[in-house]
Amino acid sequence: MGLILDIIGGLLLVGGASFLLFGGLGLVRMPDIYNRIQAGAKTTTLGTLLTLAGAACLQPAWGWKLLLIGVFLIFTNPVSAQVLANTAHRRGAEKSPLTKIDRLAEDQEGKA
């Protein structure tokens, strides 16, 4: 039984780390800052959560503390992504030429 849990935990660790790798790849390949934030925020959240779950399988005694780190990440990761996106837009960060529509910029021009 312990062995099965160990293997599940190990596989979760590898799965989580693979998502981190996709995130890193997205960070390098994506054309503009918004797409990079998207790639970074989503993959690091799931990647780290899976890693924490894997660690909890390997060391069940650490479960509560790992859960605490996970809860913290679920709340803070999207918040920092949103703050970065918000700052990027307010600073007028360059958008990829593929971006066809920007309702936010349109609405702000309308107000100004």
Binding site: F19, F22, G23, L25, G26, R29, M30, P31, D32, Y34, N35, Q38, A39, K42, T43, T45, L46, G47, H89, K95, S96, L98, T99, K100, I101, D102, R103, L104, A105, D107
Partner: peptide, 26 residues
């Protein structure tokens, strides 16, 4: 949804043509 979003993102990042169509909607 989180799992789905990661799979979708991985598919976009891994495909050579990088099929994105970005927009900011309201």
């Amino acid at each position: 949804e989180l799992f789905k979003s990661n799979i979708k993102l991985a598919a976009i990042v891994l495909s050579p043509s990088l099929p994105v169509k970005p927009a900011i909607v309201k």
